[in-house]
Nucleic acid binder design. Structure first.
Lengths: 210, 210
DNA sequence: GTATGATCTGATCGTTGTCAAGATTGGCTT
DNA sequence: AAGCCAATCTTGACAACGATCAGATCATAC
């Protein structure tokens, strides 16, 4: 939150650069957007030379990984908070989905970094899977009636929820949907409507996972 | 499909460069992946100087736009084909979704370019909306029982389907899901299972669009 | 057959990711 | 307390990139 330490008498060895770089990166992502993030720009923003980051990150991609990690952490917290701020009206899943999409839409550049990192690793972000939103989703699914002993079914449902949330997060901002958005009474109502529509893929009933 | 025309006697004024650049770009996207696509590399692949493309595209982004355009076109065709190759088993929507995801997974770099371009324009790709998969989806939705006179509901449903398909396309490749994929009997079965799960967001019944 | 305008090249600029070599410094050993 | 070591930071460099511009080259309209 506080400004950088550029103007102050630069300490010879910058107390904790790694952290400063991460926060500089986050600032740049929020302000400049995803395009304006170069390793050099991050170093510049943190007040160090262009080569300094290489003592804390092997790659540019490793810096991005760190930014992504923080992003998933923050997202998890926001979803947890959203869940605890809601009454027990039984549509907890929608609450989670709305929180997810809301984060993605309010921090588009950071969210893009998160997704790109995951995809380049071909791996689900640990912060999501282990302690974050994924567990939250599974719990909520069980609470919503999914058999907790049917691990396959539970995993499948969680994947589906995540896929849907991500899809909505990335597609819902297009200008073409603006009329729909206002007609439905704003972004949140729009999101809820979309999520409510997501039964359309179901040709039969509750699928047996065979 | 055929190789480049580097080795031949270079025509002084390259017959139709614009087209050659697009196809060179497509080749690079397929082979090198999304990272290895630079304007200079495309020019190199097409056998022209690094400045040549600027007579046909204002920007690098304009070249990517053209690539994205072709991608959406190709995707539309594949979905149409998938639909016509299927019996009338009434799960046409799932067929469409599977075709969509299949394209995205078999051409990941191109698909990424498509999505990035759309997002940077904050606009739905015209090839999708006007003559492509979107209309196809709407038709299939009507066929599946959505009231064709309820424009709002129809649009909402189509958005939801697209969101879900995109989400699945981008999330379904993670290694964590490999056991699930084999357990369910391969990629297609996995996809169908996920799509079948997508009723979980529905807390009530068929949503009234107010 | 020549002028015009479109197309292509070469050279160049500013920026980026990355690396190697040298400067600086906090902390451990004795 | 002195001195050394390894971690940290800077300087300088390199290749590759996007972009621009002056000039060469060609197809074509007149």
């Amino acid at each position: 939150m506080e400004h950088a330490q550029l103007t102050e008498a630069r300490p010879y060895h910058h107390g904790d650069l790694r952290r400063a770089l991460i926060e500089a990166g986050r600032r740049l992502l929020e302000v400049e957007g995803g395009a304006g993030i170069s390793l050099r720009a991050v170093a510049r923003e943190a007040g160090v030379s262009p080569a300094a980051p290489y003592h804390h990150f092997r790659d540019k991609s490793e810096l991005l990984d760190a930014l992504a990690f923080e992003g998933w952490d923050q997202l998890g917290n926001q979803m947890r908070e959203a869940l605890s701020n809601t009454g027990s009206e039984r549509d907890h899943l929608v609450t989670l989905g709305v929180a997810y999409v809301r984060f993605a839409r309010m921090n588009p550049a950071i969210y893009r970094v998160m997704i790109d990192c995951s995809q380049s690793h071909e791996t689900m972000p640990e912060k999501l899977r282990d302690e974050g939103a994924y567990q939250l989703t599974r719990d909520t699914l069980v609470e919503a009636g999914v058999d907790p002993n049917d691990e396959t079914g539970l995993e499948l449902a969680a994947v589906a929820v995540w896929c849907a949330a991500h899809g909505v997060a990335e597609m819902v901002g297009f200008k073409e949907f603006e009329p729909l958005r206002v007609q439905l009474g704003g972004e949140e109502a729009f999101l809820r409507s979309i999520f409510s529509q997501l039964d359309i893929f179901r040709p039969g009933r509750k699928v047996a996972v065979a």
